[in-house]
Write a protein that binds this DNA or RNA. Structure first.
Lengths: 209, 209, 209, 209
DNA sequence: TATGAATGAGCTTTCATTCAT
DNA sequence: GATGAATGAAAGCTCATTCAT
């Protein structure tokens, strides 16, 4: 039907991608405020400046949006990790990003903020929804690789390079420490941020991470 | 007027308590399968073998049930921690309890299992629902105390008692390690359980925990 | 079963009557606060200091309670009218009774107050519920008689006795004036009470009521 | 973007208004049969030939529908009064309209009928529900103005114009007479319509209304 | 007689999804 | 492609009534 199938197709695809991104952007903001279940399609449509019906042209489901957003987190996480030199720095940056999320008011998603609640919600949802589980499981290997890279990098920076085996084991520890930090900080927002920070830094030093 | 006022009252109270427990038991099972938002009052009523209306005689709200269950977790956690001697043991036991939860099929809640998904969901929900936040915040101090006790106990058992300040800092590390273990293990159920276990044990040893 | 059928029966009947009255008293209070539909059986039972189930031993229905209360209003109205000498006095007394009702706080039904809202609600309900309609219709003849008596009395007191035919016609007017006063005063509680009062008194004088 | 934005918008607005009217029409019929509390949203939806959910696109609440209908009564009342020349005529017309209402079977609302039961129910409800009270209170001034106009008009027609002060006082009487007529006629539908009519007409003449 | 636990149908309201335009 | 009106199933919750004790 279109006169220029190739060119038109490319353009159409670009537009398609732009629309998808608009929806995801809106959904991210809404989910951040109200969580998956607290956010209705109407809210997403409003935030995206389009009709509800149109969303279904780009995503089969509300679940599909959730899946897409979950998927995005991998990329964000990658980028965040890539810009970090040492394990110690990761802890600092992460705390900053959680603080940024917490301070971000309704409707405004601060660039570089880490939506800890969404992260937990996705993780919990993955135990019930097979589709989300698939997405989460699929991104885990990459996360491990990124964490391993960081641990290796960090060790080299400290002048104590590690063998492959040691890297793996320390990566596990580092990951638990970081994920635990998120969970801990979410559950008890009033706790002393600096105690948290220093305690972990101390452990990281002690573990040569 | 009744011949045994005290006894009758006690009996009524006992029944009341039994009914509450019946509802909570049902809710726990349902929530475990479908999460808070995925579970309707109808499902809980069915699982409890009673009418929906009756539930409201024992709980004001669906939220009240959630709160009660969240609150219970504190007690379970306390008991679990109390029966443990060293930090190293905690890791082992926790992994076992998560495994038990995972293996528990739908409808059957194994005694002593740790519902990791519920734990995450509650934590996430606390960032949006003020009531749940209150429950979570209220139980945090006790959790910290319990963890500190464990760390102290563990250090003494290892022959290296710690000063108060050091206890606090290591407790933070220990707690992050444990919470991170939960999150990590939930997100990637297929990962090698033994690598996880050994890596953490190694860290615990290295940190004199 | 009872050893003294006659005496026991009388006693039982007295108790029965007392219980009915307790329920009606409670219902009156509750209805006054919340109206028929806004009042639950639970509230009535609580106010009566008895169990919900017991109410059904004395009244088949919630509707039966409504009917009984509606029925009572006749008696109250009779008594109120009986104690009044002239049409002019009726207006004064009625306004006082409505004010008393308005000022009566929750839970306290002032003796002699006239629950205007209940009166309207009953009247409206009578157009839909056949049972209530029957009660209302049944009490109308008596109300007309009582009003006629008042009009006759009032005329005699003014030294201008009326023929039977004139009595009937003026009674109609008087009744409309009074019912209209109720409705008017309910709909616009902020209106000037004295304007209302004086205007009606003037009309009553002009009409030789 | 649309070729006829204005026209399209107007069309949409017209449809919106039509739908609202459809709902109100249905609600009026249902309320007339069963009263506010006796009518469920399901019944309204069925009568309007639409789904329950759709109603909420046009009215926030069931209460909002009640409010809208209550509000409408003002307009109807205005129009009815505007087309009337004398107080005497008002009595005749009102009786006709109440008769029309009574004869209108279930499901059919006759144009120009006056739903006396709804009027009473609204008045009663206004004493408990703040929202309805607000609507009723808000329309009272206008009703008084309309009644005053009628009384003034009627006096002029009778060749006996009145001073402002007298108008107010006689308006009060007239209003009570009319509202009382409604209430009286509702409570005792079997009473002789003509006695009612003539008695009031006589009084109106005597009072120079 | 009296209780109050229990029921079940009903309520108002929400929301993911579809479809005519 | 885009709209937003429309659907219908399900949600949480209430309440008059019944029944075992």
């Amino acid at each position: 039907m279109s006169p220029m199938p190739a060119g038109g197709g490319a353009k159409a695809k670009a537009r398609q991608e732009a629309q998808r991104e608009r929806i995801l952007e809106a959904a991210r903001t809404c989910f951040s405020e109200g969580g998956f279940h607290g956010t209705g399609m109407a809210a997403i449509a409003r935030a995206a400046g389009m009709s509800q019906g149109l969303i279904y042209r780009y995503f089969t489901n509300k679940a599909a949006i959730i899946r897409a957003i979950t998927d995005e987190q991998r990329e964000e996480r990658r980028e965040a990790l890539a810009g970090i030199a040492t394990c110690s720095e990761l802890v600092d940056k992460l705390l900053e990003k959680i603080d940024a999320w917490r301070e971000s008011g309704p409707g405004a998603s601060i660039e570089g903020a880490f939506d800890a609640a969404l992260f937990l919600e996705v993780s919990a949802e993955a135990t019930r929804d097979a589709d989300i589980a698939a997405v989460v499981t699929a991104q885990e290997p990459q996360i491990w690789i990124d964490f391993e890279d960081l641990v290796r990098r960090s060790a080299i920076a400290a002048g104590k390079p590690l063998e492959a085996d040691a890297v793996r084991r320390r990566t596990v520890v580092m990951r638990c420490l970081v994920d635990g930090l998120i969970l801990c900080y979410v559950r008890d927002p009033q706790q002393d941020r600096d105690v948290l920070r220093h305690s972990l830094q101390e452990a990281i030093t002690a573990l040569c991470l």
